[in-house]
């Protein structure tokens, strides 16, 4: 039997949507018992959310003031202590999980598997490399703990409605004082979250300016969509970094992805290949984005996008 510990990502009050997908990946392993570990200042509502996830056996909480902010250097030793009787430790492949899980793995003396996209067995997984151009099958040794991150875009969230028991635990771990949280600046947006939105409208370098990006926002608002961007648009300063989609930004899987003025570099395409339907609007008929688009429209975005926004009423 596999005993899997999933590390919960949260913002201090709610569970991150990536966790229901991480649990979905863990549940692909046959005969698995899945526990979720919440490290927080006050775990209450977060633990309750985790307990509602299908396939979860138990929710464990470690509450302390030092867990108020997700600092890998402080979380890792606690996770190592809590992971002693587990065969697997999984985290989401978000900036939180990518920061934390290699530190956990190194402290446990094992290698880490990044971005699991499918499960072939309890110790056999597939993951993308080279910006998704290649898929590799990996076999982890059976006699050591598996530490991994899950490519959440590859999984649908598990259902809710469960009521797993919640248990407070304490661990014996030395916490360093060398790393301190200062502050965080969250992008302020009333729009749906890019990583969980059913519809995403994304703009590229062809938008040409911060002001022109309003075309994207207006269309997105009409569709109730999240907003994304190519690396080129972020580098050009049209939008903030957290909107970047692709190899080094966010990997997303909305039902509908509308790429506007995005040429479709391979590094961008890897971030959207799991989208249900991809729409591309681009002036250049030869743009690589059209190779992956389900629906393509070759045209000037400055004409097409207002027209589309208008047509949606």
């Amino acid at each position: 039997m596999s005993r899997i510990l999933v590390i919960a990502e949260h913002d201090g009050s709610t569970l991150n949507a990536s966790i229901a997908k991480t649990v979905a990946c863990a549940a692909q392993i046959e005969n698995a018992e899945i526990d979720v570990l919440v490290l927080a200042d006050a775990a209450g509502p977060i633990a309750a959310e985790a307990a509602s996830l299908a396939s979860v056996s138990r929710v464990l909480t470690i509450e302390s003031e030092s867990n108020a902010h997700p600092l890998a250097a402080l979380l890792a030793p606690q996770i190592v202590a809590a992971a002693q009787n587990y065969t697997h430790v999984f985290g989401p492949s978000t900036t939180f999980g990518k920061d934390l899980m290699p530190r956990v793995a190194a402290l446990l003396g094992v290698n880490q598997i990044s971005d699991i996209m499918s499960v072939a067995g309890s110790h056999e997984f597939k993951r993308p490399i080279y910006a998704g151009n290649v898929v590799v099958t990996l076999s982890a040794p059976a006699d050591v703990i598996v530490v991994a991150t899950v490519r959440t875009a590859s999984y649908k969230a598990v259902a809710t409605g469960n009521s797993a028991p919640i248990e407070s635990i304490s661990v014996d771990a030395d916490l360093p004082t060398h790393t301190r949280f200062v502050d965080a600046q969250a992008g302020s947006s009333d729009r749906p979250d890019l990583q969980t939105a059913a519809v995403v409208v994304a703009g590229g370098r062809a938008l040409g300016s911060v002001e022109n990006f309003d075309l994207i926002y207006t269309l997105a608002d009409k569709l109730g969509a999240g907003v994304g961007a190519s690396r080129a648009a972020v580098d050009a300063g049209y939008v903030a970094n957290e909107l970047q989609v692709g190899q080094t930004g966010k990997i997303i899987a909305p039902d509908l992805y509308i790429a506007i003025g995005i040429s479709g570099a391979i590094q961008h395409l890897t971030g959207i290949k799991d989208a249900g339907t991809i729409v591309a609007i681009n002036k250049d008929e030869e743009a690589p984005i059209f190779e992956v688009a389900d629906i393509g429209l070759a045209g000037d975005l400055f004409t097409v996008v207002p027209e589309l926004t208008e047509a949606l009423g």
């Binding site: 913002d11 600092l71 978000t94 900036t95 939180f96 060398h178 790393t179 301190r180 949280f181 200062v182 502050d183 965080a184 600046q185 969250a186 992008g187 990583q195 903030a240 970094n241 957290e242 966010k250």
Partner: peptide, 12 residues
Amino acid sequence: EIDVGMERIEID
């Protein structure tokens, strides 16, 4: 650069 925006940490 984190998923929700920016974070600052102080390290020794």
